[in-house]
């Protein structure tokens, strides 16, 4: 992994339906940094991550990775973005290992599977069908799958939901390792991830919210 990477956005605006979620949003991070997205519920943290992953269309703005514009570049997206939101994308019918193996096969990183499973502390669950797991264990499985992804940029939306203290520690170790290797992380969360403050940049989505001046009576 290249240790001199940058990931930045300028003037991002995104709409959900007719409602503008945020306007003119900017950020810039370098290799080994974490951008922590904060802000009240509904301020657009998930929307920002989703649009950076290319799952939502931008109203305006630019996204650059290492100085190159990457909007609409599906090759770049599948190579450089690892996205994990609220849904775990696991199949109840398959075991933990089968679930992870399927995606690792798509990403052609089968050699990462064992390490990822150990990193999230779910080695003993390998042969258990996901249907029998607790929500925290499912989260760990989804995170272990994300660790198999070769991407430089991680987009995590509330990755700690359901995790116990040990799970949180394992996650922060994994994040630390990714950042040390030169990776970048954008993470929407409300908890303390246990990562050195010096590596964290905060982005408050509330600063970019669109002024809701619309007179409510108009709607009636």
């Amino acid at each position: 992994m290249n240790k001199n990477q940058t990931f930045s956005a300028k003037g991002l605006s995104v709409n959900r339906g007719d409602r503008a979620v945020f306007e003119n949003l900017n950020f810039h991070i370098n290799s080994g940094e974490l951008l922590k997205l904060v802000g009240p519920n509904g301020s657009g943290k998930s929307t920002l991550l989703k649009s950076l992953a290319g799952l939502l269309d931008l109203q305006s703005g630019t996204i650059d990775h290492n100085g190159q514009s990457v909007i609409g570049d599906t090759d770049w997206r599948s190579r450089s973005i690892c996205y994990l939101a609220h849904k775990n994308a696991l199949k109840n019918e398959f075991t933990v290992e089968e679930n992870i193996t399927f995606w690792a096969e798509l990403w052609q990183t089968e050699d990462q599977i064992t390490a990822a499973i150990e990193q999230m502390g779910i080695k003993l669950l390998c042969d258990t069908p996901v249907a029998y797991l607790s929500s925290g264990q499912k989260r760990r499985t989804a995170l272990a799958r994300s660790l198999c992804h070769p991407a430089d940029i991680w987009l995590f939306d509330e990755p700690t939901v359901g995790l116990d203290d040990q799970g949180l520690r394992l996650l922060s170790n994994a994040m630390g390792k990714h950042m040390d290797a030169g990776g970048m992380i954008l993470c929407a969360t409300h908890v303390d991830l246990g990562i050195e403050e010096a590596k964290i940049t905060r982005l408050n989505l509330d600063d970019f919210s669109v002024n809701q001046n619309t007179d409510k009576t108009e709607l009636w």
């Binding site: 992953a53 599948s78 190579r79 973005i81 996205y83 849904k87 994308a89 990403w107």
Partner: peptide
């Protein structure tokens, strides 16, 4: 279950 999001981002 969110798999479709992952498929949309897959190679």
């Amino acid at each position: 279950d969110g798999s479709l999001d992952q498929f949309a981002l897959s190679p």
